[in-house]
């Protein structure tokens, strides 16, 4: 269960991107958050993924309040969340092969020994062939790189997934393939999902329910 309770966040305290946003995702549920360009969805996604500390309000993950961290959220919480962003080119370390990229979170958390076995599960799950796994980001297309970024997000078997415009720069077939990979993972693990974007058709088809951005905000803050 993820609960954002009257959260205010931004990059400069005097002019927050949004004030008082609330949103709940039940265990195993998938929620699509829809909003116009530049409304603050991505900032909210970063808060939900514990990558950005809110200025006010509460963030509760499975009953534990996790708002009180200072520079970085505690590791055991961070690793419970998997995140995929819109731009795989900026999200992926250009020096790593796709294989290294996939298991990077395992190495970073001292679980190097599990890497090979996990890679063997992840690569087919996200549709990457051995040939592609050996290449670096500049040698693959955006779609192939985004498959790797999704694999990396699943590497630590998160209970909770945040996808921010994961498929915005992809063609229809690659989009459907990545969504199918997320859904297979969720069926196997019961993980919850917050998918953020502005493609209404896609999020309605993909998620259990969709929420309009303005409905997350208190009446006086609605645009």
């Amino acid at each position: 269960m993820l609960e954002l309770d009257t959260v205010t966040a931004g990059y400069d305290r005097r002019t927050p991107v949004f004030r008082g946003a609330s949103l709940t995702v039940a265990p195993g549920e998938s929620v699509g958050l829809l909003g116009p360009s530049g409304c603050g969805k991505s900032t909210l996604a970063r808060v939900a993924a514990l990558l950005h500390r809110p200025d006010a309000g509460r963030l509760v993950l499975d009953g534990t309040e996790v708002t009180a961290w200072r520079h970085r959220a505690p590791r055991e919480l961070r690793t419970a969340v998997g995140v995929v962003f819109q731009q795989p080119r900026t999200a992926a370390d250009p020096r790593l092969t796709l294989a290294d990229l996939l298991v990077e979170p395992l190495r970073a958390t001292g679980r190097r020994a599990e890497a090979a076995a996990r890679l063997a599960e992840l690569a087919p799950a996200v549709g990457l062939t051995p040939d592609l796994l050996g290449r670096r980001p500049h040698e693959v297309s955006d779609g192939q790189l985004q498959r790797a970024c999704l694999g990396r997000a699943l590497a630590l078997r998160p209970r909770w997934l945040v996808c921010d415009e994961m498929t915005a720069m992809l063609d229809a077939s690659t989009t459907a393939a990545l969504v199918a990979a997320v859904e297979t993972y969720r069926e196997e693990t019961g993980a919850s999902l917050l998918a953020v974007g502005h493609d209404r058709l896609l999020l309605r088809r993909w998620c259990d329910r969709t929420v309009e951005w303005q409905d997350c905000l208190p009446a006086e803050e609605r645009p």
Binding site: L132, A172, S173, A176, L201
Partner: peptide
């Protein structure tokens, strides 16, 4: 046809496999 069938307001099924190198 496969590309159109992958659309979320159609079958939403990906084309199997990946494009060639």
């Amino acid at each position: 046809r496969g590309l159109l069938d992958a659309l979320p307001d159609r079958a939403f099924t990906p084309i199997p496999g990946m494009p060639p190198e």
